[in-house]
Nucleic acid binder design. Sequence first.
DNA 1: TTGCTCCTCACGTCACGTGAGGTGGC
DNA 2: TTGCTCCTCACGTCACGTGAGGTGGC
Lengths: 181, 181
Amino acid sequence: MMWTISRLARKFDLSRSALLYYDSIGLLKPSLRGANGYRYYAKEDAHRLDQICTYRRAGLSLKQIGEVLRSSGSKLGQALEQRLVELSREITSLRGQQRFILGILGPGVDPAKLEVMNKQTWVALLRASGFSQDEMANWHAVFERQDPQKHQAFLEFLGVSKAEIEQIRQGSREYKEKKNH
Amino acid sequence: MMWTISRLARKFDLSRSALLYYDSIGLLKPSLRGANGYRYYAKEDAHRLDQICTYRRAGLSLKQIGEVLRSSGSKLGQALEQRLVELSREITSLRGQQRFILGILGPGVDPAKLEVMNKQTWVALLRASGFSQDEMANWHAVFERQDPQKHQAFLEFLGVSKAEIEQIRQGSREYKEKKNH
DNA sequence: TTGCTCCTCACGTCACGTGAGGTGGC
DNA sequence: TTGCTCCTCACGTCACGTGAGGTGGC
């Protein structure tokens, strides 16, 4: 029930050099070293590696993972919530890059390649589904009242500029909602 | 009309060491070197740096920027389109991390912190705006027909799982649209 | 003269990937 | 004996940040 380094790497779909690196920084040391220097990983090592991989999927750094494992779980929630905040920022930044590039390339780009939603496409879709101007306005108003944060996030997703987002949200707050259209 | 290194850095909101680095890799060499070794940047250098900053905002690597500038613009479109594809992938990956973390943390997290849209919030909003089940189904069908790629992107934005996305899109393709509800 | 700016190394970052050169196990 | 796996350095990556130690300009 022991694994050599390459076998363990294959089992977890990692590279041998990744495991060598984890050993070198003290994140994952094999339980046993052969007389020839070979690393032999036991079941507990595999379990620890499993946790490492889990937290890597969440985007935690190896340093953070080490701390989380040392703290026997008490730091986990904190680290993950912090990572969520980071992720929001990173995604916002990347979406900013997307829109910046679209601004440079102008309207002459193939929209199919982008997988980026924009306001025009969105409005056109609602129109085609039979939504009136008034229904859309009403929907924004409900959205703004019920969850302003997510309303903001959604408008950003559509690639609407900061100024226009503020305008739409302002208008939504002033709009008199109709519960049944 | 010449800038020393720190003045130019301040003008472009960069660090001095960034400019030293650009010099060291040959991306931006000052037009003039004083007898004492001082770097003096001329107007053309500032213009080149302006371009470098523009492409950095798009997320191009310094290597790519060097190639774009050497090619006198012919490589620009290609590089930016490639960057758009990369950005899509990166954003998808980060959103995957978000959802993975939410899965670990479970339902006990403050949703205001997340700025992540999800299906529940979305459906609740539509309900509150007075949309019927049938109207939503119709809307998906129109979306799927008019722009399948963006339909996919939108469902991913809502954090819907791969399997459920396929299910919804399949259902949308089979749905008989109603032009006027 | 005092600060401030400038210079050139050189090392650190993060998570490995990639040889080089050599040894052990089936 | 032949491959295959293992070992330990050591250097490269990317875009800088951060000293260290020293000099020039107002």
